[in-house]
Design a protein around this nucleic acid. Structure first.
Lengths: 200, 200
DNA sequence: TCCCGTAAAATCGTATATGATTTGAGATAT
DNA sequence: ATATCTCAAATCATATACGATTTTACGGGA
């Protein structure tokens, strides 16, 4: 009925806790306690951690164990850079086939963002920001790039809580840039122009 | 002395066999025989497969097992697209700090490629091609993007053997494009121009 | 013939147990 | 006071064993 292996359960729990910031970077992931908490043996937990290791969310050392990946100061910036790159590409790929409906939905989200500027909530704003872009790039035909975009957002979610930084004025610019992207899409502007606009 | 866990050994073996084409796409990875062959139990093999799963090289189904990831016809193209994107970006990032030495080395590699055009060997050519680009992008400061470039090349290595396709005339163009990239780098051309040139 | 149900084989999933490695605390010598 | 050695505790790594699930083969009935 569950249709979920214990490895998978363990993976989701750990992943969720990293995302939520409950396991902060540097936190040591000891097998036994986690297994105990989940009511399973350590074997599935190990497998879950292997997956997280392959995804770069945790680091590993032989006979020592795993810990939540440390993020250098530059890490955040690198992630942003990468995400900008792939998301820009994804958006540009979608551009030719974008529908009126998509544009309208994105515009609505952006409008909500504009309104939320009044009593500013960073978390909420980020959520809406993701939603805005999602509407545009989810139709991207290249599954690889789409996957990279998702990974980028996930990674960002982890980082934001630990090394938080948000330039206040940035939010206003952001909304304006969204308007610009929508305008370019509606006008069927050249792909390159759209890609560069979406990079921000 | 080994300093290598059995999981790691298993990972490398399977990975190597997928890369080399010995395990073709669709091949079913049954735990017991692999474990037997390596002289270990199935547990480390399972962990290795989890990692490969997270990397997208194998697919997995509960209580059924793993098989080497199937590649659709479009997969190859998508990988190429993605690789072009990230490699272009990586090259552009390196551009400002590229050294004379790097340019000279890259030029030498390209010269060898030009010579190899006479008695054409696709495998050899691809190898040189990777070497050419490696010289240029290995210094990329953004480790994320660098990692994506590596993944892209690995993936490509897997795909090439299964769904092989090589347009003969493409090789000549390629060498010419390399010349162009080197020229732009030497001239300290705008980053965007370099990025777009490197995308091919 | 074709479909379905049943049972056996193959394979995976996980718990437990044991050995190996690393870490850390305390004692001892300098 | 510091460095080093020793030993115990913590933790990981893996093998083995057993249970669960899926697949496959086979035989009876429509």
């Amino acid at each position: 009925m569950a249709a979920l292996s214990k490895s998978e359960q363990a993976y989701r729990l750990i992943r969720e806790r990293i995302d939520s910031g409950r396991y902060v970077p540097g936190f040591r992931l000891v097998l036994a306690p986690i297994a105990g908490e989940l009511g399973m043996s350590v074997v599935p937990v190990r497998e879950a951690i292997r997956r997280l290791e392959a995804e770069g969310l945790v680091t590993f050392e032989l006979n020592v164990g795993a810990q939540v990946a440390l993020v250098e100061e530059t890490e955040y910036q690198h992630t942003m850079e990468t995400l900008a790159l792939v998301e820009g590409a994804a958006t540009a790929m979608v551009a030719p086939d974008v529908t009126e409906d998509q544009l309208a939905r994105a515009a609505r989200v952006n409008e909500r963002m504009r309104q939320s500027l009044a009593n500013f909530d960073p978390h909420r704003f980020t959520e809406l920001n993701l939603e805005f872009h999602s509407v545009l790039f989810e139709a991207c035909p290249n599954t690889h790039i789409l996957d990279l975009v998702h990974r980028g957002w996930n990674r960002l979610k982890v980082l934001r809580d630990s090394s938080f930084s948000f330039v206040p004025g940035r939010a206003h610019e952001s909304v304006a840039e969204h308007d610009e992207i929508l305008r370019l899409l509606a006008d069927r502007a050249p792909a390159l122009e759209i890609e560069l606009a979406a990079r921000n």
